[in-house]
Design a protein around this nucleic acid. Sequence first.
DNA 1: AAGTGGTCTAGACCACCGA
DNA 2: CGGTGGTCTAGACCACTTT
Lengths: 247, 247
Amino acid sequence: MTDTTSRDTDQTRPGFRPLYAQVRELLVARIARGEWAPGEALPSEGQIAADLDVSQGTVRKALDAMTADRLLVRRQGRGTFVASHDENRVLFQFFKLTPDGGAREFPTSRLLKVETGRATADERTVLELRPNARVIRIERVRDLAGGPALIETISLPAALFPGFEKGEVPNNLYGLFATRYGVSIAVASETLKAVSADAKVATDLGVPNGSPLLMIERVARSIDGTAVEWRRSLCRTDRFHYVSELR
Amino acid sequence: MTDTTSRDTDQTRPGFRPLYAQVRELLVARIARGEWAPGEALPSEGQIAADLDVSQGTVRKALDAMTADRLLVRRQGRGTFVASHDENRVLFQFFKLTPDGGAREFPTSRLLKVETGRATADERTVLELRPNARVIRIERVRDLAGGPALIETISLPAALFPGFEKGEVPNNLYGLFATRYGVSIAVASETLKAVSADAKVATDLGVPNGSPLLMIERVARSIDGTAVEWRRSLCRTDRFHYVSELR
DNA sequence: AAGTGGTCTAGACCACCGA
DNA sequence: CGGTGGTCTAGACCACTTT
């Protein structure tokens, strides 16, 4: 094919989308459908190019964009893999609380409560649910560097996680979402405030009543943009801090 | 040139660097030297390619990488421009405190103090300065959405900003750094904690003594990696919140 | 040696901008 | 209209990994 333009690309208007964007969309959809599991290799660039009848360069551009979005991991000489939510990824992408003197580490968990119930108004708003939708609620204390660091309350749309209560609640929730339910967390927005510890929280975290705590509210979304998790954390910052890279 | 390899690229070892990375490095150095001012256009891709005797595709890859790092702004049909620190960029890249109900906005400033002095031990460590180095210190209160939002203390290496005290202290410091001193802030790391307001700060911010505040410590670095600013902010979060996008 | 992603080139054409 | 960046292709060769 010598002529570049005998395709979708030359639409003079209005829904023009670059070919690589279309390729990307297609691949994202296939990953979201679970066609390739987390950690699994995609076909080679040349293979995909042949299948879709586009050039390898176009496929490469789509894969590079997906890699930049952390959807894929490329390994030279080996292949291109669907990103998995192993502890390392979750630690660096999603867990921003760090011991003051030391290195980043993954927190442990002590479960306080798991329940299912009708979504509150707030939960419906944040998670974009219908009236009467049900949610799973999790409450747990997490330890870091040998002591309690935070207490977190998590709300999940029950419809996305059937049978959730019958299993264990693992330390790394996002890993479970991905492997058991095919729900891959892609991005999260966090909102931070400073608040005072009330009596219950102070006890759970072992700090004086009224101590300043960092409150983190997170909404996590999957690859296709669905709101999947609402999480509120209350964090000690006397021995820990939250890191944020501005770039 | 049909043979791809008659260049630096085919070094079998050890200091192998892709051509586009070398091009990028060169261009970054020239920008850091002030060869093109913020807001100014670079030569066209073809021009740069011809000058450096590489292909346009290689130049494009270098420019794309620099654009991803927010060093450049590309505008189709017009050219490639050195990123400037206008209020919009500073607002979205560096100012993460937002009014609770409303849209992001740029804060105003009320100057409390400007002074020059010998760097403290902390300042020397954070800003990577020699013993006896001098620093400029700025203290100001910043208003957002019609009320005091934060009080910030800033330390700058005096050597980088000669004559700083003779001029005004603008609201947008990074703009001044770029245009007057050729120092372009590229990245910043922030560390967040929750603390209690002491009497002085409580007065400045108009909150009760002991109120929880968000403390933000920032180290900002220029294009070439030099630590340029150490900033500590104490923020009200009763009407504001800090946003952090995890991706 | 074979297969994968990574780099580099060359050239054609499209989309956008300003004169 | 001419110039700029944006897309797409095709092909050669390099670097890395596994067999």
